[in-house]
Amino acid sequence: MHLAAPERAAFCLPFSRLRCNLSLFFDETPPTRFLMNPLFRFIAELQDVSLLLWRSVVSLRHGPRYFAETLRQMDMIGVGSLPIVLLTGFFTGGVLVLQTYPTLEYYSIQNESGRSVATSLIRELGPVLSALMVSGRIGSAISAELGSMVVSQQIEAMRALGTDPIRKLVVPRIAALILMLPLLTVAADIFGLIGGGIVANYIYSQDVQVFVESVRNGISTKDIIGGMIKPIFFGLIIGVVACHKGLSTRGGTVGVGRSVTNSVVTASIWVIIFDFFLAKALQYLLDIGRL
């Protein structure tokens, strides 16, 4: 069976194989036709992403390792994303108190506003919102950079010069995301609590000590651990999706734009879907979220 040109690239070879395998189920269906089927497209893409991840993991076994590139990415992802993550955390914490305080007051449990904001932020909103912000800022940047390198033949040049682009480009980015996203999440959580405290104090005249006490009573070590585990997975998702979308770019500069959009949308959706399953898994494993 003949295959489309872009799928012949080493990154997409497994995709081609899948196409061959799937085609066994059809008598005269042209490959491009059955690939229009969203289900097959999804399975094929999932296979590509899984293989990219597998090759990234395998490449960690031996050198060369690009520590300097990983540090550069950590700086770009961590330090670069800090302002937007802090702002997001601060105002999310603030708005949580703003919206929940009147309800809590109705039930005369307004002293628990700190617990409410802490639980929401540390368990859910901190990790998810930080991941979504990083997906928008970093996921798009990664797929745009790699996509541009594909269309301007820089990736081919890299391979021609004897460098494995997965080692050189993919692994440092994924590693940096996995390392930096939990730290960003912690920063977002802290600023969220500060934002919540300020709103509770200045708008609802709640004593700061009461708010802090409520926060301390509301969260446990397990909550913090759970809140740190989630971003590790989210970082992995954002990194793998962004790198895959970037490296599978085709169609010139228009294709780069498409890759960026797809990268952000896909990573964001996967973050939200995975959040549910991670929450359920953490509930089971760490006994979080049960009263």
Binding site: S148, S152, Q153, Q154, E156, A157, M158, A160, L161
Partner: peptide, 11 residues
């Protein structure tokens, strides 16, 4: 050694 059409230099 490979010389690409547009040079393919690393920007």
């Amino acid at each position: 050694g490979m010389v690409f059409q547009e040079g393919a230099l690393f920007d």
